[in-house]
Amino acid sequence: MNLWLFRMLRSSVGRKVLMAITGLLLIGFLVSHLSGNLLVFAGRDAMNDYAQFLKEHPGLIWGARIGLLAIFLVHVITGLTLAAENKAARPIPYQKEACIQASLPSRTMARTGLLVFVFVVYHLLHFTFGVVQASKHAKHLEGLRYDVYDMVVLSFHNPIIALSYIVAILVLWMHLWHGASSFFQSLGWNHPKYRPVFEKVGPVLSTILCLGFLSIPLSAWLGILKAGGM
């Protein structure tokens, strides 16, 4: 690797940029993930068609998975090293702590980030690997087709599962509240004219995304979405 690239990516500013870019890509993923998930409201067929489409294009889905995993790991590992350095930068804490204006989400990024990480593992074990609730994991329908729709809806009939998802989405909401505004600054884009707008991007975007995500477990739990394969 070129020396300069190495130096850049190791520097405080370089890693800040890395966090911003990977964060931005992960937000992009969330948007596409949500648009796919929302097909659940279009009915079982739409949802299952989408799942089948993905299944039939292994190149696409594995490419995306590997890329996503790499981005995710860079984001998590860089974030953890930064957080460790930040902690080390103030070995003796203030006896009396105070905060002037920083938002709660901005002050808890490392913690919310870790919780999101834990959730993602859980989420994968749940829907992708079928370790959680193995009995309800996508059953085969009409031979080759997976019934993803039923899997999702039935899962969230379990209040514990629905609640865990809801909590996780709220944590994600906090993480994005700060993150989706912060990347402008990290990438060097700040200006008195745009700053008020940038500062609202995070809260607005995170709220839209999370409302979207919340709608699924809530609808399933409250019985708005009904499973049909039972």
């Binding site: 405080s12 890693r15 800040k16 930064l82 350095e85 930040n86 080390a88 930068a89 103030r90 905060c99 002037i100 204006q101 920083a102 938002s103 901005s106 002050r107 990024m109 700060h178 505004s181 912060s182 600054q185 990290s186």
Partner: peptide, 11 residues
């Protein structure tokens, strides 16, 4: 110098 990193909290 061992300063921490910026997390855009603007304190």
């Amino acid at each position: 110098e061992g300063f921490g990193n910026c997390t855009n909290q603007y304190e």
